[in-house]
């Protein structure tokens, strides 16, 4: 078995890539195990880890002569060394001091067949109705929401973490049959503001401005619009031809407004990341709460 690996570290994440080659004439099963300190973040499809992956690595079967590349990420110390590193695993032992993975041959077994349900989720499209549709339908028709996706990211890209987040959604939030009136409506309005602020159209945000938080949400939306305009300008200027750049300068009314765009975009990126992280953390915490209203009512 030939194997080599490389590791890239950035922003507190280590990306480990391994290349494997079965140079024999028989199928072989290999276990790639992370030696890094931290949980393995496996490749996912529709939110479900690819077959063979678990918390510490992956087990894969290689046909005779087959080459395969596998990779995973591990959250590491954000203050750790930055950069990349490469190595080649010699023969059967890969226990070099700096190797991020242990690659061992394992006995062929039958445990490789993934649960049918997980395989189906990986293969088929998501069942989740898009966030903006949920806001429109559940919001307007039933008058209640409680969408767990507080950050309003919607779409395809956030599915991998959705199940974890939603697993912690408090019951009252999305149970249509419970009469949890005012509290739920208020929560819904807030969420809709935020969601709309991320591109689902601002109409509803205005129509529903019934709680004080919505004013703040409007301001966040305004700010995001400004930042987005700036980013779009930066994108148009990135790798632009002379003609495109000239047009952009004309459009901006001279070179003056474009001075310092780089720094402002860098600041935008920092701010967006900081808020984004905080919003995600807050959303997770909000979802993890479980106010025992029933019990309190009984006690009251």
């Amino acid at each position: 078995m030939e194997r080599s690996w490389s590791i890239d570290r950035a922003a507190g994440i280590a990306l480990v890539r391994c290349r494997l080659h079965n140079d024999r004439d028989v199928p072989r099963k290999v276990r790639v195990e992370s030696l890094l300190d931290g949980p393995v973040l496996p490749p996912r499809r529709n939110g479900v880890p690819e077959a063979g992956w678990d918390r510490s690595g992956v087990t894969i079967q290689l046909d005779p002569g087959e080459r395969r590349a596998v990779g995973f990420a591990v959250p590491t110390d954000p203050n750790g060394p930055i950069g990349s590193n490469e190595g080649v695993g010699p023969d059967e032992s890969t226990d070099q001091d700096d190797s991020p993975v242990a690659i061992t041959e394992t006995e062929p077994d039958d445990t490789g067949t993934a649960a049918g349900g997980a395989a189906a989720i990986r293969r088929l499209g998501t069942h989740r109705p898009p966030a903006d549709v949920v806001a429109r339908i559940d919001g307007d028709v039933t008058g209640r929401g409680g969408e767990c996706d507080v950050t309003g990211r919607g779409g395809e890209h956030d599915r991998s973490y959705r199940s974890v987040e939603c697993g912690m959604t408090p019951k009252a939030e999305s149970d249509a049959d419970e009469s949890d009136g005012a509290e739920s409506d208020e929560a819904e309005s807030n969420e809709d503001e935020v969601r709309d602020g991320n591109g689902a159209g601002g109409r509803k945000a205005e129509a529903r401005a019934t709680v004080s938080d919505s004013i703040e949400a409007d301001r966040i939306e305004e700010w995001l619009d400004t930042v987005e305009a700036r980013i779009e300008r930066g994108e148009r200027l990135t790798g632009a031809t002379l003609a495109e750049a000239t047009a952009e300068v004309d459009d901006a009314g001279g070179l003056e407004p474009l001075l310092g765009l780089d720094e402002r975009l860098a600041d935008d990126a920092t701010l967006l990341r900081r808020f984004g992280d905080r919003m995600t953390a807050l959303a997770t915490r909000a979802e993890a709460t479980d106010v025992p209203i029933d019990a309190m009512e009984e006690l009251a």
Partner: peptide, 17 residues
């Protein structure tokens, strides 16, 4: 089964099995 899209969106199908 629940009747809200919100509820549908929150479902984790890996639990169904």
């Amino acid at each position: 089964c629940g009747r809200t899209l919100t509820g549908a969106r929150a479902c984790d199908l890996t639990v169904l099995d």
